[in-house]
Amino acid sequence: MNRLDRLFAILVLLQSKKYVTAESISERFDISLRTVYRDIKALGASGIPISYEAPRGYFIVAGFFLSPVAFSMEESSALLLMEKMVRALADKATADQYSRAMTKIRSVMKSSQQDLLDILDENTQLQFSANWLLQENFIPKVQNAIAHKQQLQIQYKDKSEQQSLRLIEPVGLIFYAFSWHIFAWCHLRQDYRDFKLNRILQVLEPGTGFEKTDHLPISHFMENLPVNY
């Protein structure tokens, strides 16, 4: 990647997050910290209002807007493939949201790219078992609860078909063993539990924040999955 492309990519990265550390930029683009500092200075000199807040990192001052991004054919093809995977592995609400996002992306493409993407769309298919598909649109509610640290009340059916009402604090959403799982603090058990999403019968959002303030990171659960995925 030449420097001009890298500067543009750093700008896009800064617009995609609230804060970006120099270390994360260095790792993302495989450059030294000294080069990161030079690139940030160059972006500032070109008129991009970049500021810094310790220890969070760099950020673009509110009010700056970058014109619509142009997508390469390779990037567009990857997004198309992900759309099909989302439709196969997520719930309908999530798949519909992704499709709407793809429509916006297609709208900024050149007509020649749109034509090529249509050909790929028609000739790329995924085959998954219907048993893997989620019947209820719970993923958006779970994601919202994780992001805003909000409790959920779920009606849950375990592998013995026993139903119970649980008040949980969802820490993370993990896909493993061909199923979506919520890792959450369960108020009933006073411990963390792994709830399989397709065993949840109902999800309610009581609008209550987390009571527990020192939850384990999602990396802890990833390291201790019951299967090697």
Rank of each mutant, 00 (worst) to 15 (best):
D5L: 15
D5I: 14
V12H: 15
L13C: 11
S16D: 10
T21H: 05
A22Y: 09
S26R: 11
R28T: 15
R28V: 12
F29H: 05
S32R: 03
L33P: 01
L33Y: 05
R34P: 08
R38N: 09
A42M: 03
A42Y: 04
G47W: 03
E53Q: 13
A54S: 12
R56G: 04
S67Q: 07
V69L: 12
S72T: 06
E75I: 08
S76D: 07
A78S: 14
E83I: 11
E83L: 14
K84W: 12
D91K: 04
D91R: 04
K92A: 05
T94P: 00
Q97M: 11
Q97N: 10
Y98A: 03
K104D: 08
I105V: 12
M109P: 02
S111T: 13
Q114K: 10
Q114S: 07
D118P: 03
I119A: 14
D121V: 08
N123L: 05
N137R: 02
K141E: 08
V142Y: 00
A145R: 03
I146L: 03
Q150A: 13
Q151M: 13
Q155A: 05
D158K: 06
K159T: 09
S160L: 13
L165S: 15
E169V: 00
V171E: 03
A177L: 09
A184W: 02
L201Y: 06
P206C: 05
G207V: 06
G209V: 04
F210C: 03
F210D: 00
D214S: 15
D214M: 13
H215Q: 01
I218H: 06
I218S: 05
E223D: 08
N224G: 08
V227G: 00
